[in-house]
């Protein structure tokens, strides 16, 4: 079992005629073909104005609605450039996509506020933006992560960061733990899906036995997650927070990674998670070990 991505997932790519949109659609198609031979998981793409053409075997449509009707897709992977990305996400929601995975980095915050408002009336779930995507190892990946570092298993990963998630998956592999699903929620201040929503999904997923939460400085989403964990999560958990040495007032790469007004520090997030019973690794080198300790009930 897994969350978000299953054998019924069918994906179209918005922005498929762009360089990275096409490249990653190809990589995702290869991975899915290895996992589910003979099944077409990545069924096409959308670029307004290029409908009716094909690109490397992917049929291209003018709109998400048309793509959904003609391919049966239920999921969209979004690579549309930042100035137009909010519009693309809203179009996917309007077309009834169940899952929208937005990889694009650099969407203005005001645009994301409008997206969030637009999604309130929708049943679509948005993951990201500014994220590596979602992978259920052995089934499919929707995003830019390298497939081979993720092994099938029973740990759910929720992370704000891309390469740090790869690092975590690799460390889990070294201690013999695979993943049910790994989800990047993105490094932007406003995103589609919170830690709490994913914690709930992993808690309810029979295929997930433990959860690794990777956070970073900025905002208070990790503290809110800690509150939720206390009363709702019974599965063993480990965690790590990036940015313990970051200076206040400086944006550390991710738009959301900034300590402002004395709030959003790594120390307060680590303390909140520890108080909620999460095994927190102070070192990024200890994420796998921390998860193993949590699974063995050693805290």
């Amino acid at each position: 079992m897994s969350i978000l991505v299953s054998k019924s997932t069918r994906v179209i790519t918005q922005g498929i005629t762009g360089n990275s949109g096409l490249f990653h659609s190809q990589k995702c198609r290869e991975y899915a073909a290895e996992c589910q031979p003979g099944v077409d998981v990545f069924v096409g793409g959308v670029t307004p104005g290029k409908g009716g053409t094909t690109v490397d075997g992917f049929p291209v449509f003018n709109s998400v609605r048309e793509a959904r009707e003609k391919t049966g897709a239920n999921t969209s992977m979004v690579f549309v450039p930042p100035p137009f990305c909010a519009d693309a996400i809203l179009e996917a929601a309007d077309a009834g996509m169940e899952l929208i995975v937005a990889i694009t980095e650099g969407i203005p915050v005001m645009d994301m506020l409008r997206v969030r408002r637009g999604l309130e009336k929708s049943t679509s779930r948005l993951i990201g933006p500014n994220c590596p995507g979602v992978i259920t190892p052995g089934i499919a990946k929707i995003g830019i992560m390298p497939g081979y570092i993720h092994k099938p298993g029973t740990i759910g990963i929720i992370s704000k960061s891309g390469t740090l998630t790869y690092e975590a998956a690799w460390q889990l592999g070294r201690v013999g733990l695979g993943q049910s699903t790994a989800v990047g929620i993105g490094g932007d201040p406003i995103n589609g899906t919170s830690y709490i929503e994913l914690l709930k999904m992993f808690q309810d997923d029979p295929g997930t036995e433990g959860i690794l939460l990777i956070g970073e400085i900025g905002g208070s989403a990790e503290q809110a997650a800690a509150e939720y964990i206390k009363s709702h999560v019974t599965k063993p958990m480990a965690g790590f927070i990036a940015g313990q040495t970051a200076p206040p007032g400086k944006r550390m790469g991710h738009a959301g990674a900034i300590i402002s007004g004395g709030g959003g520090t790594a120390a307060e997030k680590m303390a909140a998670l520890t108080a909620a019973g999460v095994v927190v690794s102070p070192s990024p080198g200890g994420m796998g070990e921390a998860m193993l300790r949590a699974m063995q009930g050693r805290g």
């Binding site: 960061s161 740090l164 990777i214 400085i217 790590f240 313990q244 040495t245 790469g253 990674a257 990024p284």
Partner: peptide, 13 residues
């Protein structure tokens, strides 16, 4: 990667 870059600073410290 931004997350790994922040973590590397933490690691050094």
């Amino acid at each position: 990667g931004a997350g790994l870059a922040m973590s590397t600073m933490d690691l050094i410290k």
